[in-house]
Amino acid sequence: MTTNVEPDTTADDAPIEIQLSAGAATPTHAVAAGQGAAAGPAQPELGPPIFQLRDLGVWYGKNEAVRGVSMDIPKNAITAIIGPSGCGKSTTLRCLNRMNDLVPGARVNGEILFGGEDLLSSDVDPVDLRGRIGMVFQKPSPFPKSIKDNIEFGMKVNGIKPTAERVEQALVDAALWDEVKDRLKDEAFSLSGGQQQRLCIARAIAVEPEVILMDEPCSALDPIATLAIEDLMKNIAERFTLVVVTHNMQQAARISDQVAFMTVEGKAEGERCGVLAEVGTAREIFSAPKDPRTEAYITGRVG
């Protein structure tokens, strides 16, 4: 890795090839730039940032949903966004692949640099962007098609030839292959909730994105299905940058490399708005939180 701000030319290869150990060349840098949160010391276990959020704010109509979020999201690691409900976790996540463009009346300001380029810029193509930054939602949302067609849908949309090998690979990556290999033509709705969610992850993986965003992917699932998905997240994190919104702190502690804690801040006239309280490595946040609100939340005094 270079210290150059310009995109690294060596990364023109598939992201899978990029070795992301704590490289000796990685310079000291601050990962956290949250307001009020002092930039942490050197964090050699986290790689260079793929996303750099700068003073991100979101309005839905006249309601300010999120204000002033600034943080870095390291490449090929799992970043968890936690916080009480209504703190704007999902809203922030949905900015990263411009899903908020689809919400009528939503306005996003600030900057989100992706590989050094502002993806919020109006001349960036959001459709193409979403092919590179995939997303898995809270509720499993398979299409009313066969399992195979579900996987192939995204491939066709992104101009990837849907070969049998690619379908299989995606399902293997999502730890679903053994369960469905004999019934690829079955309706996706015939799968259990946990299987449907893994199918949605497989569907996202098949597109070969660089980042996969996950919006509370386990909140609709039972504990066993949740563990299966957590394992799968850890397995694919070597190849993809994962950003996971969760309300489950144990889950965040189990899976994440970096944790961002968001909270709700009261405004005038009783309105409330989500802000970033603190961001740091999972160890820092869970063992030595700097922000009193983080500490209150993770020790169970709030929320």
């Binding site: 692949n97 899903m99 459709v127 590179r132 898995v136 509720k139 299409f143 849908f153 995204g154 996202a204």
Partner: peptide
């Protein structure tokens, strides 16, 4: 359900594809 549309948009589908390949079949 909107979740189905978002699922397709999240994969990089355009609105035409979402309409014709996801919503209409559903």
């Amino acid at each position: 359900p909107n979740a189905m549309r978002e699922g397709a948009f999240g994969l990089g589908a355009t609105r035409r594809v979402v309409s014709l390949k996801v919503v209409v079949p559903a």
